[in-house]
Amino acid sequence: MNIFRLAGDMTHLISVLVLLLKIYATKSCSGISLKTQELYAMVFLARYLDLFSDFISLYNTVMKLVFIGSSLAIVWCMRYHRVVRRSYDRELDTFRYWILVGACFTLALVLHEKFSFQEVFWAFSIYLEAVAILPQLVLLQRSGNVDNLTGQYVFFLGAYRAFYILNWIYRYLTEPRFTRWISCVSGLVQTALYADFFYYYFISWKNNAKLQLPA
């Protein structure tokens, strides 16, 4: 564990807490893409198949449970909670993400570290996470003004993988045989997808104005 990875995990945890705060405090999920939440639930379920087979550390196990539990709770809330579900932007959140799921799974069948059930699903989860934010970014562009908590949620979600890139650079420089090309390339693509959001987020923060993404 290094400071970059810890910062990344904490930033990721903060993004989840901000989202939970928004939903429970405002009893609303307007501006949040259910499809991105469902993609993230798939990402965590596919990535943490080793939850019960490999014990790495208490921290690792606890964080895996937190990410799986929170992503499923948010999906459940947005689908079935009788108050929250009413504020879901159903007609704006129309991204056909099964294309993404199919493409990522096909890529994982071709490009993986080892051809085993667990490794193929692990590679699938890495590729899927890289594109999971797309429905959310499309929804932000369509829904015009973005409320603060939603903007902060997306910001922290993007920032966490940027910290992981620093972590991979650090591990590459300090550990003799560290090569995680699948994670690194996917992480770069994932962070790059946030580039324009980060730009508009910075502009809104600098001008102390509401976050506006161009349609």
Binding site: R5, D9, I56, N60, K64, K114, E119, W122, Y164, N167
Partner: peptide, 10 residues
């Protein structure tokens, strides 16, 4: 001991 390639990152 064959070290299985375990993903130690989240």
């Amino acid at each position: 001991l064959k070290v299985r390639n375990v993903h130690d990152e989240l």
